[in-house]
Design a protein around this nucleic acid. Sequence first.
DNA 1: CCGAAAATGTGGACGCTGTCCACTGTAACG
DNA 2: CGTTACAGTGGACAGCGTCCACATTTTCGG
Lengths: 171, 171
Amino acid sequence: MVLREVTRTVGVVPNAAYRHFADRDALLAAVSDEAVGQLARRMAARMGEVRPGPHTPTGARLRLRAVGQAYLEFARTEPGLFDTAFAASDRHLPAAGAGEPSPLDHLQSALDNLVAAGLLSPARRQGIEYPTWATVHGLAVLLRGPLSSLTDGEKTRLEAQTLAFIGASVS
Amino acid sequence: MVLREVTRTVGVVPNAAYRHFADRDALLAAVSDEAVGQLARRMAARMGEVRPGPHTPTGARLRLRAVGQAYLEFARTEPGLFDTAFAASDRHLPAAGAGEPSPLDHLQSALDNLVAAGLLSPARRQGIEYPTWATVHGLAVLLRGPLSSLTDGEKTRLEAQTLAFIGASVS
DNA sequence: CCGAAAATGTGGACGCTGTCCACTGTAACG
DNA sequence: CGTTACAGTGGACAGCGTCCACATTTTCGG
């Protein structure tokens, strides 16, 4: 339900796709990589909008919040890309080589800022990116699944509460 | 990739399924409901194993942990059912009518115990089931996706850290 | 106990999907 | 200009979910 659909919107016969992608999964993986990149860029943009310096307490806190907000915003405004990003790609873990920073990289640096600002002890910092990621990711998934019947207002409030929930555990 | 597969393992022609389910999605929803029920029962079982009383501080904390552990254990030992549970069902939100308690019901009561034990203020209790659920659910999803390459030991440690993460935010 | 009615299963077909093969057209370039 | 790589075409295949008409079994009230 993907390959033929893509070739159709491109206006080309299904087999033409095989000149560019090995199979359906390779096509999906390419879209997934693009989605991960978009998410990362959106995170970077939201972090860039924060005024206080990254090593000030408020600056660090606002940056962590910005990362989470960008994640949830992406999941809500680009549901298709969000789904695809987590349906196929291996690009979530920081790229071994160079390349643009992954979403996880941005989360890491936001958490490092909290440490630099003295809000998070290095001991608690250890490995906390995963519970943090899980919380935001889980909310994004639940909001598109079992909680999809909530109103937009309720969803927004829940997003705020969840980011506060993270803040309480992370400092 | 479901309907014909099921009828095949049952040893029956594909059309026979239509005597029992309206279509593929209805079949999937039925399996999903069963999966949600199994998850709920597993939670209840783990909570039942906790010795200290539900309204004692340790009892309340251990019950919340038991709920989370049951969730993560279910996701790891029954990946197929876990996926299906969240692919179709509407039975995650507490059943409006009677019926057996949903997974969310168990989480709610564990959180209520924390309040009764004096570990969680009623104000913070408000709506906290969703960030809590999101954290555990998100971890379960990430462990089967981007974090699937972790060793079993790393996964177990991460599960423990995540439950501690919740504990830090919930009390 | 029998016959009607309900429940369950069968066979064949349809349009859709991803995929393979052999073939055609077209652009690049020494 | 001719070769070579590249991109697209046409036809076919098996598998999927679904629909229809038909057969078989099970259940039950008179």
